[in-house]
């Protein structure tokens, strides 16, 4: 193949990626179908959506920016506490609370980004974890503001658009969350398919060569980190609104590990990986916990080990490998 042909093909590939694939509308129709198919599983559906959005925010820095974080719940928690504190102190309008949560998390992300872009590898894990631990301790100490380990009491979110009250079946909550998550997914999709997103991918693949192409590594890294923090904050605020309660666990290390697990199970750098991972992780956990509440951890651990050992990029990677294999087999069959 000539260089020119290669370039043409690369552009075609890029265009093909940007175009909506056949499975994408199916995926979102499936999410809508959940509402009708599993009316008694709506609270679970809502929490899966929140977790998926959180995983998506991590995918932006990890799958696209190559930044590994063990403390991403820092921003999730900031979003949750922002929304919760506003609601506690008299302003419970859900959409503004949500946006405020995202905004504050973005500011926190911007401050952290100065540090984040300067370290790599294990040090990066430790720095992100360290920031998270310090913030957790601060929230624990400042119980006059945060309620400490008792959680933030007296949160009252208003009716959505002044009309829809949060009901016990979680219908309003589910529809609202799905709408917000879909909009943010479109935003994330736009970002990763923009030239900026491409530059990020290049950064992840080859950290040394990108500056030669004129890419401002640190600025790109900082920008995607802020965007990711904002989305993490939004997911935290979203969960706070559906639970109507905020406690220290939203800043806990466990949540960072969980979200990392979901993302890896699903697959990184493919956007849908976070949705697949969150759904599988939460549904499996829910079902295993119902079967045997005491030892489900074992099976989650086993699934994790198997996925890491035997798949190339989580479930989405396994899925695409399987379809490739099928295609090749079919292709081979017609040729002979």
């Amino acid at each position: 193949m000539t260089t020119e042909a290669q370039t043409t093909k690369a552009i075609a590939d890029f265009r093909a990626q940007v175009r909506w694939q056949w499975y994408e509308p199916l995926f979102w129709l499936g999410a809508i179908a959940w509402y009708f198919l599993f009316p008694t599983y709506l609270p679970l559906g809502t929490q899966i959506l929140c977790a998926a959005l959180f995983a998506l925010s991590l995918d932006l820095i990890l799958g696209y920016g190559g930044i590994v974080s063990l403390g991403h719940t820092t921003f999730f928690g900031i979003g949750a506490y922002t929304a919760g504190l506003l609601a506690k102190h008299g302003w419970g309008e859900p959409i503004t609370c949500l946006l405020a949560g995202g905004a504050l998390a973005a500011i926190a992300g911007w401050i952290c980004s100065f540090v984040i872009v300067r370290v790599q590898g294990v040090a990066l894990l430790l720095v992100t974890l360290g920031i998270n631990l310090v913030l957790y301790e601060a929230a624990n100490k400042a119980y006059t503001i945060t309620g400490g380990a008792d959680g933030l009491q007296g949160i009252e979110f208003w009716k959505l658009f002044g009309v829809f009250d949060y009901d016990i079946y979680g219908r309003v909550s589910f529809v609202y969350t799905l709408a917000v998550v879909f909009v943010l997914f479109l935003v994330a999709r736009r970002i990763v398919h923009s030239p900026f997103g491409l530059a990020l991918k290049g950064m992840r693949e080859n950290w040394k060569r990108m500056p030669a192409l004129g890419a401002a590594l640190r600025r790109h890294g900082a920008l995607i980190f802020v965007l990711s923090a904002a989305i993490a904050g939004l997911s935290g605020a979203l969960l706070a609104e559906s639970v109507q309660f905020v406690a220290l666990d939203s800043l806990g290390v466990q949540r960072s590990v969980d979200v990392l697990t979901m993302l890896i199970v699903g697959g990184t750098g493919v956007l849908y990986g976070s949705f697949v991972g969150a759904t599988v992780y939460m549904v499996v956990r829910d079902q295993l916990a119902d079967l045997n509440p005491a030892y489900w951890y074992f099976w989650i651990g086993l699934i994790l080990v198997v996925i890491v050992l035997f798949t190339r990029n989580g479930l989405v990677g396994a899925l695409s490998d399987a379809t490739d294999w099928l295609k090749r087999r079919r292709g081979g069959g017609t040729a002979s």
Binding site: T40, I168, Y169, V243, F245, V246, D249, A289, P293
Partner: peptide, 23 residues
């Protein structure tokens, strides 16, 4: 009907309470 709240986790606790009520 046994449910695991997984520890200090108000979101899980609220969800399983909802599930116990509606499902």
């Amino acid at each position: 009907v046994r449910k695991d709240d997984t520890g200090l986790a108000p979101d899980v606790s609220k969800r399983v309470t909802q599930e116990l009520a509606v499902r």
